[in-house]
Amino acid sequence: MVQRLDYLKESPSQTAGPYVHIGTNPNWVEITGVWKDDLGLVLVGPETVGERILVEGRIIDGSGALVRDALVEIWQADAAGLHNSPTETRGTADPAFAGWARQPVSDADGLFRFETIRPGRVPFSGGGLQAPHVTVWIVARGINLGLHTRLYFGDEAEANSVDPLLNRIPDPVRRATLVAPRTERDGMPVFTFDIRLQGDGETVFLDM
């Protein structure tokens, strides 16, 4: 017999189910008085450094229907490309920017919307810089293991063209699923990131 590799196995995932918000956003589902504020509601304050932007989108299933019971979390670097995390080793991030937020999609129109800042560039493990991006994670009823994807910015064509992750996607149609087009609303840039779980235009999901 060879020696044993004493690794543990990761706990297997199970779906978040239809009532994930009881655990993550109890106040949003009218379970009040347990704790005051649900976590992750606000990313940006008056002191936060960086360009204010809106990130919004919908989640669409394989029949074209809106997914209205999902939970979306985002995680991103600050304006200088640093993460507000104890495991950040490259410097100290903007203390006025949490970098993490989460939100139930709206029951009414299936929309998620985050007011955040444009992140700076983060290095790639193999050297060089990644294009600015937001890490996105989705759970819902019917999703057995949380889906990781990334939002890239439609007005960052030059950085996107040399991004190591985007350049691993040979099909330009699939690649475009990660690039959120820019519009403006009340003078604020809006990046629309619709996530298609299945079928035509299926979003690229990540095994990272």
Partner: peptide
Amino acid sequence: LRAPRQALLSMPTTP
């Protein structure tokens, strides 16, 4: 209807 059908994009983790 909620299962992605395309292969996931695999890459080592980054910061």
